[in-house]
């Protein structure tokens, strides 16, 4: 297998191009700028287009326009930039456009800092913009997954005609790891909803307006059905020593890597600890968590935010078992040593 040592941010762009992405609209922001830089380098070489937009707002709306044409295109940014894009994301959700957006999360609120956090969980997983919508959200934890999940994001976006996110952070974006590549995708079916600028597609309308409340309600019901379908079909998670686990840690993204190391150590000491790592944050592995809770398994949620993931775990566990919590914020990444300590304390309590 041929592998390339690559930063996560670059892996995103290579994954996107292999998935058929040909247009990128971006605005510089640390720590996501390398995605725009790589896109500006590679896309023109393969007949694609890179535009540095005048703002995050313009970038997301350029994406809205391009994807209206039924083609694969993307943007990326970091937390404050994503906040700016939220209106456009809501429009894309309403118009059912398969946009792909990468959020390389940094510390907040406000200008915060450029160190990694997971504090955009709510603004990405719960919608973020106005209206009753959800994004499909994939959370990589390695450079390889930055590549692979970006590729999958395009397929999911088009399958569901829905905004799809890669939710990652400055740590994974900057980390270099070996990446191996799938073959480029070459064939893309014509989308019957898109506007191609030709006779066959000219009756198509890309819009999110439904003036009549009954019509808008019906549209919303249709969207909710779509989300339910995704909930049923698209849940992905990593099972790490869950089968005999008496105690389960739930973590996603970079934190799951530290948890993995912690569990390896604790297993050596004889503690039956496992990890459930959600790979899709929406749809969330609710059923799996509920089943474990039904068996009395206690959880420790660990995240680099203020209990945003915790809320979803508590809801999924339906308050049947203790759900402990350990978090870091401000750009601090929990080390596996401190996690070992936290897990031990909770393991003994449960």
């Amino acid at each position: 297998m041929t592998r390339e040592l690559l930063k996560g941010n670059y892996a995103v762009v290579k994954g996107a191009i292999l998935a058929g992405c040909r247009l990128y609209f971006g605005y510089p922001i640390t720590p996501a700028s390398e995605i725009a830089e790589a896109a500006s380098n590679y896309l023109p070489l393969i007949g694609g287009t890179f535009i540095q937009a005048e703002s995050e707002v313009a970038a997301i709306n350029m994406l809205y326009g391009a994807v209206s044409g039924g083609i694969r295109a993307m943007t990326a940014s970091s937390s404050p930039g994503i906040s700016l894009k939220q209106e456009g994301i809501s429009y894309a959700a309403g118009a059912e456009l398969p946009i792909v957006v990468v959020d390389v999360v940094r510390g907040g609120p406000g200008l915060g800092n450029i160190a990694p956090e997971q504090s955009d969980y709510n603004q990405i997983v719960k919608g973020g913009g106005h209206g009753n919508y959800k994004n499909i959200v994939l959370a990589p934890n390695s450079a390889q997954e930055m590549c692979d999940l970006t590729r999958d994001a395009f397929d999911l976006a088009f399958k569901y005609r829905n905004p799809t996110f890669i939710l990652t952070d400055g740590f994974i974006g900057q980390m270099m790891e070996p990446v191996s590549y799938a073959e480029p995708k070459m064939e893309f079916p014509r989308e019957d909803w898109a506007v191609y600028g030709d006779r066959e597609s000219k009756r198509n309308l890309i819009s999110s307006i439904y003036l009549d409340p009954d019509e808008l309600e019906a549209h919303n019901v249709k969207l909710q059905k779509k989300y339910e379908h995704a909930q049923e079909k698209e849940v992905r998670y990593e099972n790490y020593h869950l089968d005999d686990a008496k105690f389960v840690v739930i973590a996603y993204g970079i934190v799951s890597r530290m948890v993995r190391s912690a569990i390896d150590q604790l297993r050596k000491e004889g503690l039956k600890v496992g990890m459930l790592r959600p790979i899709t944050l929406f749809p969330f592995p609710k059923k799996e968590i509920k089943e474990m809770a039904n068996h009395g398994t206690a959880f420790l949620v660990t995240e680099m935010s203020n209990g945003q993931l915790l809320e979803d775990v508590r809801l999924a566990a339906e308050f049947k078992v203790p759900v402990y919590f350990y978090n870091r914020m401000g750009g601090n990444v929990p080390g596996s040593e401190e996690l070992i300590e936290q897990i031990k304390i909770r393991y003994q309590q449960s």
Binding site: A53, V57, A58, N61, M62, G65, V195
Partner: peptide, 28 residues
């Protein structure tokens, strides 16, 4: 009776940019 895209407030030019770059043959 053409292709139609409805844009957010103020963003028509950005949306126009996107679709024109996606389909340069189209008249936007």
């Amino acid at each position: 009776d053409t292709g139609n895209i409805q844009a957010a407030h103020g963003r028509a030019a950005a949306v126009a940019t996107g679709i024109k770059r996606a389909h340069p043959h189209s008249i936007v």
